[in-house]
Design a protein around this nucleic acid. Structure first.
Lengths: 187, 187
DNA sequence: TTCATTTCTTGATCTAGGTCAAGCCCTGTT
DNA sequence: AACAGGGCTTGACCTAGATCAAGAAATGAA
């Protein structure tokens, strides 16, 4: 069984029929390091399920790239508002390193939602974990010092923090690259 | 039609049967100003749909009450993790002013999820808007000054910001009461 | 290998907003 | 009416982390 199906299986029982329909719609693709996967100038019509590698969702603010978040193996990513509401949004996505993904088109996803009611259940449950992560990030932003943010990042992104350029981590954490560099040095 | 049903109708078509089952399980109740609605020392087994008034979800950090968020008319509130995973969590909820709510028990909600597949769809869609709000709050925490946070709060919580004590707003925004007081004075 | 570009470090300031402290102004209670 | 306690303001100081600047180190192209 491939990784996408494994992922769905964490939340729902995937019937053979659903499995078939998913597999029919999901296409493996490899992006090269540095490649732009979604451009904010377009509406996002695909979701990407990462098999290996790292993607970065970012936007431009005052001429600088600000990292919104990193996505790694086993996660779906897209430009959320753009994808769900079929309109333009600020986020672009690129590859931090060579990345293998399964691509899934909006229309295909909609088809799955329409024909398999258990997909709503999947969405409800997986969004529950997403909400949990977001709440945690909010708490972290409100109460922790730069040092604590960095330590927390190293723990939770343990396997990728040395693969991502420092200034992207800094903008993700909302601290300056200089401060991050100093934190890193002091230990 | 009452407010709860109106709320569901925003996301899904509520069948007469679902309507009946919801109405059977939802109970109107009034809390007095200052009353504790959910105590963090218990597992949260109810959700509250607010008809009028203001509830505040908070937790204790270093002996101080920190406001996580305010909930107002037309919204559901509970202690999310505690409610969904049936375990203890840090949040308590109290009433900022006299508040009328509809109460709904976890088990009753589970019943609805089990018997009405459209409820999954409702949950998926309503969590979508929640995720949108959380993302916005994250952006606000990362990039805005105290002044901008306060201005933004006044806009989005326009109808309640003068009904809530200043120090609760301050802790919600993650700034000190003194700073908030000064911001308020300077205009 | 060399040169150029990007990434990272280190140092010197600067500032938004936190902390501490004191006093005032309410609102409710006796 | 008085007084107690919470809520709010204002002032003086302090500190975490931003910004500005310049150089070092790594990466990668030719």
């Amino acid at each position: 069984m491939n990784e996408v199906l494994e992922h769905f299986s964490k939340y729902i029982q995937v019937s053979p029929e659903l499995e078939r329909e998913i597999m029919k719609r999901v296409h493996l693709h490899t992006f090269k390091k540095g490649e732009l996967i979604h451009d904010a100038r377009n509406i996002c019509i695909e979701s990407f399920f990462i098999r290996e590698g790292i993607l970065r969702t970012y936007f431009i603010k005052d001429g600088k790239e600000i990292t919104e978040y990193f996505s790694t193996a086993g996660e779906w990513t897209n430009s959320p508002k753009s994808f769900m509401q079929r309109k333009l949004d600020i986020y672009s996505i690129d590859a931090i390193e060579d990345t293998k993904v399964f691509r899934l088109n909006v229309e295909d996803l909609v088809y799955l939602f329409h024909n398999f009611p258990e997909m709503d259940r999947y969405a409800r449950l997986s969004m529950g974990t997403l909400v949990g992560h977001l709440l945690e990030r909010i708490t972290s932003l409100r109460f922790t010092s730069a040092k604590e943010k960095y330590d927390h990042f190293r723990e939770t992104y343990h396997d990728i923090y040395h693969r991502v350029p420092l200034n992207m981590i800094a903008s993700y954490l909302g601290i300056s690259p200089e401060t991050l560099s100093r934190l890193r040095a002091e230990k």
